[in-house]
């Protein structure tokens, strides 16, 4: 059985044109699946629906989202809350912006753990520190006592991933986790995400517009265009043998070192 099955999902905002129409795909345990496409293609809407945090007015009007055998669309708010805490986590594009600017990382981190579990303070900190170490944030003391503005973008992003992974969710959703970062820092974060899967067996859905990152990380890739999933397949199929013209165009458009130049 797949860990996540999305079946004929259609999502609309205020009964307008669908933002996601009739999308289906499966995610197996321990896989990294990337959703790629241009802005407005519906990829972010889709993963927000999985976490049940669609902006107001947004609704899954048709289809099913089945996580580990349960259709999460049928859950009530309280049950969904529990799913969010224990089974699914999300990392946002700009973790810094989703952090409280006047609280130390330590207290925010603990809060995020204590919401779901009643455990002693010390255990809490232990867990946080070991997660931060896994993310290669070696100076854990400084990181834990820092305010968000004292950390660089790359460090905040890693703290965000660490926080998301602490509850050992079955599924990690990442919405453009490297897009706000510089290229060298992006490479570091991509490396951490890869390690999460290789070493700790995490299942990850990655939304990105960076085709290179998707190609490096993914086992499967879904290409979205104007609310539809135009192509879904294994990484090699999509990258090396795309069936759809749109996928081919998308790959061609990515600037490449040694690729074509406009300037003469």
């Amino acid at each position: 059985m797949s860990l996540l099955e999305i079946k004929n999902c259609t999502i609309r905002y205020q009964n307008g044109e669908p933002a996601v129409s009739n999308v289906s795909f499966n995610v197996e345990k321990g896989e990294i699946v990337s959703l790629v496409g241009e802005s407005g293609s519906g990829k972010t809407t889709l993963i927000r629906a999985i976490l049940g945090i669609l902006p107001s007015g947004g609704k899954v009007t048709e289809g099913q989202i089945i996580l580990d055998g349960t259709d999460i669309l049928k859950l009530n708010d309280r049950q969904m809350e529990a799913v969010r805490g224990n089974n699914i986590s999300m990392i946002f594009q700009d973790v810094g912006a989703s952090m409280d600017p006047v609280k130390q990382v330590k207290s925010q981190y603990m809060e995020s753990i204590l919401v779901h579990e009643r455990i002693p303070r010390d255990t809490c900190i232990e867990r946080a520190v070991s997660m931060l170490k896994r993310m290669h944030l070696t100076d854990t003391e400084r990181v834990m006592n820092a305010y968000p503005f004292e950390l660089s973008g790359g460090m905040k992003q890693r703290v965000g991933i660490a926080m998301g992974m602490t509850a050992q969710p079955k599924l990690l959703l990442a919405d453009e986790p490297t897009s706000a970062l510089d290229v060298t820092i992006q490479a570091q974060v991509v490396h951490e995400i890869r390690e999460l899967r290789d070493k700790y067996g995490a299942t990850i859905i990655l939304v990105t517009h960076n085709m290179g990152v998707a190609s490096y990380l993914s086992d499967k890739i879904g290409v979205m265009q104007k609310s539809r999933m135009v192509e879904f397949g294994s990484r090699d199929e999509i990258i090396f043998h795309p069936k759809e013209q749109y996928t081919r165009d998308l790959m061609d458009a990515v600037p490449k070192i040694g690729g074509k130049r406009f300037a003469r």
Partner: peptide, 12 residues
């Protein structure tokens, strides 16, 4: 900087 760019046709 060059090496930090992920090529679409990279080797995983």
């Amino acid at each position: 900087l060059l090496e930090a760019i992920f090529d679409v046709y990279c080797d995983q």
